[in-house]
Amino acid sequence: MAKSHKPIIWGLFAGGGMVSAFVTPVMILITGLAVPFHLISREAMSYDRVHAFASNPIGKLLLFVVIFLPAWHAAHRLRITAHDFGLRQDIPIAVVLYVTAAVGTIMTISALLKM
């Protein structure tokens, strides 16, 4: 029986699942709900402040980790979910999902490096 290469993607899935469990809910709050619901001021999410955060090396690294890992987590789990719903075109589905996650990862890296 051939040794599987699943660990490459599974490592990202599991790491992403853990990171996502800890931070995705609060990220959704901060970037999507806290400002409209006046939990934090609009000033707190101003261009200057967020840009300064993303320009800081630690801020960059944090943003990278909380974006790229959940992206791979979601891509891999969606592949399994598609199979569970009876879609048997596993390889094309996997390619589309992983390419999407890879494009997202590259966009994130290039955006962060420009700031």
């Binding site: 029986m1 051939a2 040794k3 599987s4 699943k6 569970d84």
Partner: peptide
């Protein structure tokens, strides 16, 4: 591990 770590092993489990 030749069995457990193969495709038909733990990786078929979701």
């Amino acid at each position: 591990q030749e069995v457990s770590a193969s495709h038909e092993g733990v990786w078929e489990c979701s």
